[in-house]
């Protein structure tokens, strides 16, 4: 699953939070046709979607888009 944020600041704030919570993730490039944002996204395993939602809620991280991928 790919998570898109409004800009680089928000993406890397989310990355910092995920690191602090020891949640496995990857910061990855995102092509413009997927999203017009900052060219970055965070990939997580779809199985931990709900966990990540609650972590972002607690830390006031705003997500612009959750995108399911073929591998999910």
């Amino acid at each position: 699953m790919l998570i898109i944020f409004k800009n680089v600041h928000e993406t890397l704030s989310a990355e910092k939070t995920l690191k602090e919570e020891n949640i496995v993730h990857q910061v990855v490039p995102v092509p413009p046709y997927v999203n017009e944002g900052c060219g970055l996204g965070i990939r997580i395993d779809a199985k931990i979607h709900e966990l990540v939602v609650s972590v972002f809620d607690q830390n006031k991280i705003a997500v612009e888009q959750w995108i399911e991928e073929q591998s999910d």
Binding site: K6, N7, V8, E36, G37, C38, G39
Partner: peptide, 17 residues
């Protein structure tokens, strides 16, 4: 250039961009 919303010709309104 801000590195964000690059397809748009107008300045993004999100902070800090």
């Amino acid at each position: 250039g801000t590195g964000s919303r690059s397809a748009k010709l107008s300045q993004p309104d999100v902070f800090p961009d």
